[in-house]
Design a protein around this nucleic acid. Structure first.
Lengths: 94, 94
DNA sequence: ATAATTTGGTTTATAATATAAACCAGTTTA
DNA sequence: TAAACTGGTTTATATTATAAACCAAATTAT
C-alpha cells in the first residue's frame, strides 16, 4: 500500500524551496526565486504556507535600504522533508 | 537550477498508478483502487488523464457479466516516468 | 417476484491549489 | 521629476483534486 505524500511538500515550488534550504544555512528571497525559476508572487505565497506550517523560518530585515527576506529550514521542516522523501521512495523505486 | 516536474506525473494518485503499472504487466481498476486507497471517481478521472496523455492504455471488457477495466503502461508512459524520477532526484538528494 | 444492496464504474459539482496579474512602497536612473 | 527598477504582497483567475451523485447490470434477501 502506498503511503500518503505530505501535500505541503508535494508541490514543485515548495519542494524546490525545501530542497534548497536543506543544503544551505539560509537563503534570500531573490536567491530562491532564481533557483526555482518562480515568480515573486508565487514564491511569496508558497513561503507563507511553509512558514505557517512551521517548516521554515522567514525573517524580514533590511539590506541598507532594500527589504531583505531570508529563509531557513526548521527542525520540523527537516523532519517533514525526510519523511516525504522516504514515502516517495516507494513510488519511484522500480 | 531545478528542472520542471511533469505536472501529469506530479500528482499523488497518478504517480501511484504509474508506479504500480511500472512493475506489473497490467492491472485492473479495482486493484489500482485498492493499492492507491483512492475513490473510484477520482481514479476514473485520473486514469482518463493518463490515458489521454498516452501514458497508459485503458481497455474495457467484461469479466463474465461484470465490466472490467484493465490498464497498462505504454512506452511513452515508461519514458515519462523515468524522466520524472530523474528530475525528481535533484529535489530529494541531500 | 420484487425490493434492497453490491459491483464497477462515470459524470458532475465543489473545494483546494497553483499561478499570474495587478499592485505597492521605496530607490535608483535618465 | 518622471520613468523604471527592486523586492516584495495581495488578489483574482485558472487548474487540479476530490467527493458526491448518479447509472446499469448483477446479486442477495424478503
Amino acid at each position: 500500500m502506498l503511503k500518503e505524500l505530505d501535500p505541503l511538500l508535494h508541490s514543485q515550488l515548495r519542494l524546490g524551496v525545501m530542497s534548497i534550504l536543506m543544503s544551505v544555512e539560509s537563503a534570500e528571497f531573490t536567491f530562491l526565486k532564481e533557483k526555482t525559476s518562480s515568480t515573486a508572487g508565487n514564491l511569496s505565497v508558497q513561503l507563507d504556507k511553509l512558514s505557517e506550517a512551521g517548516y521554515i523560518l522567514v525573517e524580514k530585515s533590511f539590506n541598507g535600504k532594500k527589504p531583505l527576506t531570508t529563509c531557513s529550514i526548521t527542525k520540523k521542516g527537516t523532519k517533514a522533508f525526510e519523511e516525504y522523501v522516504n514515502a516517495l521512495k516507494d513510488y519511484i523505486k522500480k
